[in-house]
Write a protein that binds this DNA or RNA. Sequence first.
DNA 1: TACAAGTTTGACCTTGTTTGACCTTTGACT
DNA 2: AGTCAAAGGTCAAACAAGGTCAAACTTGTA
Lengths: 149, 149
Amino acid sequence: MNISSEIEQFILSVLGSGDEITLSRNELAQYFSVAPSQINYVLSTRFTLSKGFIVRSKRGGGGGITLVRIAGEDDPIAGQLKELEKMKELPLNRARDMAGRLADVKAVTQRERDIILSCVSDSALGGAEESGVIRRNIYREILIALMRK
Amino acid sequence: MNISSEIEQFILSVLGSGDEITLSRNELAQYFSVAPSQINYVLSTRFTLSKGFIVRSKRGGGGGITLVRIAGEDDPIAGQLKELEKMKELPLNRARDMAGRLADVKAVTQRERDIILSCVSDSALGGAEESGVIRRNIYREILIALMRK
DNA sequence: TACAAGTTTGACCTTGTTTGACCTTTGACT
DNA sequence: AGTCAAAGGTCAAACAAGGTCAAACTTGTA
């Protein structure tokens, strides 16, 4: 496993089932013997909004970085639908994050997530012009289907 | 025996009776003293879907190639896959029939069928050129996801 | 032997990760 | 207020995978 993923796991394990954690960029970097900016890389690729995290930080003496897990309670499906309405295209990475999040909060099963991801994968849409637009429409239809009880 | 077949045998023997293996393209290539792209050749000729494998890969540092063995020929999903390989396009009616059949024989849940149908619906694909082709590719990817053990 | 199919190689491409040099903000202490 | 050390931020270059494609070579077969 690469270092970024190890750092991700480490943070997740320290976070445990809590929903907030504060950490020091420099300490973390030293602990793993990497450049401090690597921490930013991990945060920006693994702790994104679509994965359910908010990152706040403060510079200067006594500063630090705080991760907040977004409470998954207020219907994530409706939330994502709303999010989608603002987008014209849905990039694959974003779709992966979003579907992963639905699985994390148990709005869909692992298997359902796999189905969703194969629908919006490049191998399914690759050939198409405007695949970003199609991906967005497909994901939107899925969410609508999931809302119907 | 040619090198490609030796590499194939090697991979199979390491895989043994397991149904998943992760390997490094460059290491393998070095081990057999061949061009890295030869590994792709082996994968694409010997570890195909019809031979019962899915190949996934990730680039970049910490990347790698994963082979997954999938279900046998006798299940309805594999049957539909075979059927699909002969088609260039998948009309919506046909997709409805096929997904319905999967639900009938309990290869998917009702809810999974709904998700599948929304992915291939006209409201998802309506705008696209060649929506029949895209529908076929999406349905195909779904089947592949469903076969994963 | 000639042709077709299968194999092997290498040049070039795309994506994901890691590092380091340089920049900005903040709080504490004159 | 002014200074400055202690955070964290940005960005581009280097590195580390794997992917693609076509040309060259080999093998099997009519």
